[in-house]
Amino acid sequence: MAIKVQLAVDMTCQSCVDDITQVLSDVPGIQSLNISLPEKRVVVEGNAGPSAILKALKSSGRSAVIRGTGSTAEGTTGAAVCILEQKTPPYTRGLVRFVQISTDTCFVDISVNGVSDGTHRASIRECGDLSDVPGSCGGVWQGASEVGAAGELGELVVRDGWGEACFETGQFAVWDIIGRSVVVSGESSGSGISSGVLAGVVARSAGLFENDKLVCACSGNTVWTEQRLVDQGRLL
């Protein structure tokens, strides 16, 4: 089952469109690509993870923001995002995206950046309380799984500070996990965010074409300026 990813990309001319086409042609799993220069919109369809698409665009020097994700299946809705943070700046260290691609299958895309190399484990926790991570998040969410815990998201291997994983699961649906938290920690990490644990609350995110805002109403910045500030750890 394929998913669609909608991005806002800072582009001004046909040369920009050509460059984006070339960069994304090297990303495995992309089946189709639709670029609108007037709307500064890129829509990618296929099996590539949203984090891999965004990473490719940023590595080329392009400013890009994921605006929505969705399934190619008719009648399937549901998308969520979790911003993984630590207590010390730069605060933002990763994202987890969840896309419901059929009634019984959820696509999970995890990416972290600037964390220690090695094997990390990711899990959905019972609670969305980040007051004293990881204890306040509760135990790993069990769900209705008869084989292990539904909230176990598996291992994430980090090399040169970057790690990513994407997979499909039938253990839960997007609507089951809204308001819960995701915790990512190294095998030898301590008990708090300050010692290497990342955490965030799962929140509903925009689906395809549900968010076309190009300027932040609060600051007046473009979405690309806002994203650069996030990358620098200056905004949530």
Rank of each mutant, 00 (worst) to 15 (best):
A2G: 00
K4P: 00
L7G: 08
A8V: 07
A8I: 07
M11R: 09
D18V: 14
Q22C: 09
L24E: 06
S25M: 07
D26N: 14
G29W: 08
G29N: 09
I30V: 01
Q31M: 09
S32Y: 00
S32G: 11
L33W: 01
P38M: 11
E45Y: 02
G46P: 00
A48Q: 02
G49L: 00
K55G: 11
A56Q: 04
L57S: 02
L57C: 03
L57T: 03
G61T: 05
S63I: 01
A64W: 00
I66N: 06
G68A: 00
G70S: 03
T72P: 00
E74F: 03
T77P: 02
G78T: 01
A80P: 01
T88P: 00
P90D: 01
T92G: 12
V96E: 14
R97W: 10
R97N: 15
F98M: 05
F98S: 08
S102G: 10
T103N: 14
T105V: 12
V108C: 09
N113K: 14
V115R: 07
S116E: 15
G118D: 08
T119D: 04
T119L: 02
S123K: 03
I124Y: 02
L130D: 07
L130E: 06
S136K: 05
G139S: 14
V140Q: 07
S145H: 02
S145C: 11
A149N: 15
L153F: 07
L153E: 08
E155F: 10
V157Y: 07
D160N: 15
G163I: 05
C166P: 01
F167W: 11
E168I: 08
E168H: 05
E168A: 13
A173G: 15
D176I: 04
I178Q: 11
V182M: 11
V182L: 08
G186V: 03
A199G: 12
A199V: 05
G200E: 04
V202I: 13
D212T: 13
K213I: 10
N221T: 04
N221S: 08
R228Q: 14
L229Q: 13
Q232T: 05
G233Y: 10
